[in-house]
Amino acid sequence: MNLETQVKSCIHNALNIDSSHLTLESPLLGNYPEFDSMGIMMLLMEFEQTFAIDSNLLELSAETFATLGALVLALQDVCIPVKQSA
């Protein structure tokens, strides 16, 4: 499963959003009411469990959550070093 598919799966699991139609250009933050305080926190939890990462390593900015593509890129930076050490 590639990273984009995994991230979409996390969004679905954490926020109960139908992510099957999302593309890398799809806007997230501000586009879905589920992306509120609880939602973002749940998503970070899901990322921690799915990718075995410390979500503190993920840059917390509006740009990170702006689109699916931005979120995938941000996770790529965090996940790759973990994979290398494993």
């Binding site: 973002i40 917390l60 900015s61 509006a62």
Partner: peptide, 13 residues
């Protein structure tokens, strides 16, 4: 302000 929560989480971090 836009994305106030993210600012709050950054402060918590």
């Amino acid at each position: 302000q836009p994305h106030a929560l993210l600012s709050l989480m950054t402060a918590a971090r």
